[in-house]
Design a protein around this nucleic acid. Structure first.
Lengths: 341, 341
DNA sequence: TCGGGGACTTGGAGCGTTCCAGGCCTCAAA
DNA sequence: TTTGAGGCCTGGAACGCTCCAAGTCCCCGA
């Protein structure tokens, strides 16, 4: 009585409606719909037809309750503004889909909000959690990771015993950029640094490489706070007339573009007067045919690997922590050139 | 036996575990946890303490099964690359949260994939669906919208009887841009157009305004296909030496930046030799102190209104379709200036 | 003293699945 | 003819929550 046979009833058809229409038990419908063997051919087609005709769609809530598994993964994004998210997300989703998992996203809006975002995932009983990018340190996340299989991709935090990390090797990437600039004849190479674990590693890589090339005396680091004004301020400081560097390695493409824009205001030509190297190979790097020299983290591989790690952790939550560093690739564009001596 | 009292048991505690620990019935626990009145103060605190101590988190699947309501909204994004998504999403999420709803995102990767994305939302039994941006025409979406309350924001499709639309008034926005340029003395104003319903409306607005100002003879439209090469090609065509316009209205900020970049290559100064106006007031418009003149769709209002419409439709799915057009605001930057006669 | 009412509490019936322990056939071998 | 095996199918017990009808107290007024 609750549901009439046709679409007359307001609510969605259930498995029982399908069973009635096909003239079998609900158990058999469940069997067929899950694609399991063991049903006669005639019943199988009858069930499929009935489901089709009724427009039946399984109820994920009921299923997850019965199965104790949701086949769902939640992803927390640190900041959608980061252009490289898109490549990473595409790879992650493709790999998850290939394993029969569904991805739900949620952006993390600052520290206060993270509680509600994570709560939603926890209450939804996602099978695993993916943290994309460097998230602000949050108490809530730490306790969550203890009970929910978690993997961090494209970031270094949170730093916990049972959380895997898959990210680019920031240290070697920055060093590679310095090598490239040294090869072009630069010595006065400065670094526009950011804040956070990944940024610090890039700065370390810059420092190490400079020392390795015997350029200790030219080491110069200006720190920005991840904001646009901060980037601009740092660029202004670096480009003071006295003692101006001939090359700048920026913490990311965004800061690199801001640096270039300030250089132009000062009448400096890139790359003739100043070489600029970014980091991330975001679409900004290609924008407007800027052709920024930058480092590519290979987000396709990163996304794939992150999902594989997550699946492994879901299978065995107590397994030891792994840290995977992918080697970044230098993409030489038109913003780095020979040093003018 | 299935769950020991301490954290010894592997699986998450249920409402029954909390009830046992607090020494009350599960019904009372449910009452307290939902914040309803009618429980004694002592029991209330006992329940809250027990829940806290056990680290209890409600199971959304069980709740939605019992309540026949998920308090969840799904959003399908046409393309995360669009920089204005971020503002829109922030507004949408804030408004949803204020109404006790949770937002889950899913990007739509082309026509083929939309089925799986929508299926996930349908099986999750989201209360409503939000389509952000102009989505590719998809059969699947059409049939979904028939049974699931749906609202489109920042786009014009799908065009269905029971789907509300909340978007900027593209026509009047484009006209406003033309007015602005005419006021600056421009007559030779060209349009770099896009494809799709919204883009067509912008082109209409451009044409109408040109005619209204008696500039029919200067109407010139070059169409791009939403891709970067397409934008570039259109810019090249518009900036041919013969008969070059003094101002260009682009379909979006991205195309505007590409146009400016090509203008620079040709040695044209913006805004001295060429005025450029974008559309969307994305963060690109501000990037690198470009200060693009552009049109702001006021995504905060748009997001808020879209959610309100969705709530109304959830309450009454059969209500008549509404189309809300928000007036865009002209943001004058440094890329539009007086025409040189 | 009794009755009534209000404040608080509880058991149990769902919600839509999955999964498991059988049950009913039919057919072949003993 | 009996027995066993195997293919196919079914009912019912979970899963964790909400909601409702039906308590149980306790206190106050008649």
């Amino acid at each position: 009585m609750s549901t009439s046979s046709d679409t007359g009833g307001r609510s969605r058809p259930t498995i029982v409606d399908v069973a009635q229409r096909a003239g079998v038990s609900k158990s058999l419908v469940s069997l067929v719909l899950r694609g399991q063997p063991g049903a006669s051919e005639s019943n199988r087609t009858a069930v499929l037809r009935a489901a089709e005709e009724l427009g039946y769609r399984a109820n994920a809530a009921a299923r997850s309750l019965a199965q104790q598994r949701t086949h769902t993964v939640g992803a927390v994004l640190s900041d959608l503004r980061n252009p490289w998210f898109i490549d990473l997300l595409a790879a992650v989703r493709a790999e998850l889909t290939a394993h029969g998992l569904t991805l739900f996203l949620s952006e993390d809006f600052g520290m206060d909000r993270d509680a509600s975002v994570l709560d939603a995932f926890i209450e939804a009983r996602v099978d695993g959690l993916l943290c994309l990018g460097t998230l602000p340190p949050a108490q809530h996340l730490l306790s969550t990771a203890r009970t929910l299989p978690t993997v961090v991709a494209a970031g270094r935090e949170p730093d916990l015993p049972n959380v895997d990390v898959v990210t680019g090797d920031d240290r070697s990437g920055a060093a590679r950029a310095v090598d490239h600039l040294v090869e072009l004849g630069h010595r006065r190479i400065a670094h526009l640094a950011g804040t956070g674990r990944a940024a610090d590693l890039r700065t370390d890589g810059y420092r190490d490489a400079m020392r390795r090339h015997g350029l200790d005396e030219y080491i110069r680091v200006e720190v920005s706070d991840r904001s646009e004004p901060g980037d601009h301020l740092a660029a202004v400081a670096l480009l003071q007339p006295d003692d101006r560097p001939t090359a700048i390695l920026a913490n990311n493409d965004y800061a690199a573009v801001i640096t270039m824009s300030h250089a132009k205001q000062l009448g400096l030509d890139v790359p003739h007067d100043l070489s600029v190297v970014g980091y991330d190979n975001s679409y900004l790097a290609r924008l407007g045919y800027i052709g920024l020299t930058t480092l590519d983290n290979n987000y396709a591989d990163m996304g794939r690997l992150a999902v594989q790690r997550l699946l492994a952790r879901i299978a065995d939550p107590q397994s030891a922590r792994t840290v995977s560093l992918l080697d970044p690739e230098l993409k030489v564009g038109s913003t780095s050139g020979n040093a003018e001596h």
